[in-house]
Amino acid sequence: MTSIPVFDGHNDFLFRVSSVSPDKREAMWLEGVGAHHLDLPRMKEANFAGGFFAIWVPSPDDGSGLDFEAQMETLPYHLNLPPMLSQADAVLTAMTQAACLRQMERVSGGDFVIVESGKQIRPLIESGKIAAIMHMEGAEAIGPELDHLQLWYDMGLRSLGPVWSRPTLFGEGVPFAFPSSPDHGAGLTDLGKRLVAECDRLGILIDLSHLNEKGFEDVAALSSQPMMATHSNAHAITPSSRNLTDRQLKIMAETDGIVGLNYGCAFLRDDGRRDENVGFDPMMRHLDHLLSIMGEDRVALGSDFDGAVIPKAIGDVMGLYDLIQAMQAHGYGTELTAKIANGNWLNFLERAM
């Protein structure tokens, strides 16, 4: 549909496909049966060239009956963080999702390839294939001794967020709160600092999305990698705890880092609501602000497909054509639009992964 391929910073399809019974997973992936934002046929048609596929372990139902989605519709809101998960609680779900990713590659007929180096990606896209990076959102499955990190690396893990929005042994995430700064809680634990060092040694990228401000500062001080937020927006436009302040963006730019625009309505809208009745204007405002600080070579896309309520104007992966058209109509031009859509991610990954 669009001549400009899109490389994406974040999706949660692995959680969605792993949530159905094993006998239904192949049909969801190859035929779209029961799928939501993503499946292989629509990705191919929409020129979705690849991205980060997140392994994410949900928190168990605590029996409280609280409707978190409803809470986010009443402003202001500040949702309590779910409690920490142990490695034992997380590892089986994480392994199942990693197995789903491998199955997706195996049954794709060669159209979907898990990559382990940034230099693999561009040739795959040029040959019409989809390139997938195994990512972990929340490092609970790694465990306190860090001995499983090497094993995950050997399985293909190349990107890791130390936290999702709940505490881990490694640090603290931001709560879902609006209006709110990302300054919640302490920095990385001693174990979290060891995790950063070990990721640097192995060549696993550190994702700053969901990490609180003090943890962000610790990563900036400790890591030798360029800083990366796969799916985060501008706090100056939408003052959500999940979004990045101008100060954070400037620090990232100094490391030649990158930010992927999150399509989640709660992180785009100026009222912090999850209401999908929103057009492309909020996305353009966030992109304009990110570009004004990060520059044209450090801003990309990070949809949060299958993990967030996204604008009705996009709908699902098929809406990427309209997003590309909206960027061009906004005045970005073909060259800048192509950088945001894929080029900036590819350049970043070729030098960092």
Rank of each mutant, 00 (worst) to 15 (best):
L205F: 00
M318I: 02
L30M: 15
I125H: 00
A234F: 01
D23F: 06
Y263I: 04
P5R: 11
E45Y: 08
S240Y: 02
D8K: 02
H231R: 03
P58S: 13
Q325W: 11
I55L: 15
K193R: 15
N262R: 06
M28Q: 12
L146D: 04
T337S: 11
F305H: 05
L40N: 04
E26R: 14
T337M: 11
N344M: 05
Q120F: 12
Q248V: 12
L336C: 03
A341E: 06
A141C: 07
V174A: 07
L320C: 07
N277I: 12
D256L: 07
L211G: 10
M95L: 15
M155S: 02
W56D: 00
D154V: 09
I133Y: 04
F13Y: 15
V174E: 04
D275T: 10
F15Q: 09
N243R: 14
N243I: 12
G215L: 01
H148T: 15
A54D: 11
D23K: 10
E116I: 08
G187A: 04
A35N: 06
G272D: 08
L205E: 03
R194N: 15
Q328L: 09
A352D: 04
I251C: 09
V196I: 15
D200K: 01
V309W: 12
F53P: 05
A236E: 14
M72C: 13
W56G: 08
M283N: 13
K24S: 05
R166S: 12
L14G: 00
F267R: 03
V115N: 12
L208T: 05
Y153Q: 00
F52K: 08
V20T: 10
G331I: 01
A27N: 07
D288N: 12
P226A: 08
W345D: 12
L40R: 09
Y332M: 13
S86H: 06
G272R: 05
L151S: 11
W29H: 09
R269I: 08
P5S: 01
L81I: 10
S224N: 14
P179N: 01
E145I: 00
G302L: 12
F216E: 02
I114L: 11
G161I: 12
Y321L: 10
G264W: 03
D256A: 11
D8Y: 00
L38V: 06
D207M: 09
F305Y: 09
F216D: 01
A90F: 04
P175V: 09
W164P: 07
K214Y: 09
P175Q: 09
M134H: 03
D288F: 06
T189H: 01
M72Q: 09
G264R: 08
L157N: 03
H235N: 13
R242S: 13
A186D: 11
L146E: 02
D288Q: 06
A338H: 07
Q120I: 12
A300S: 13
A35D: 06
P123M: 07
M252Y: 11
A313P: 02
K44H: 13
L268A: 10
V309C: 14
P5E: 05
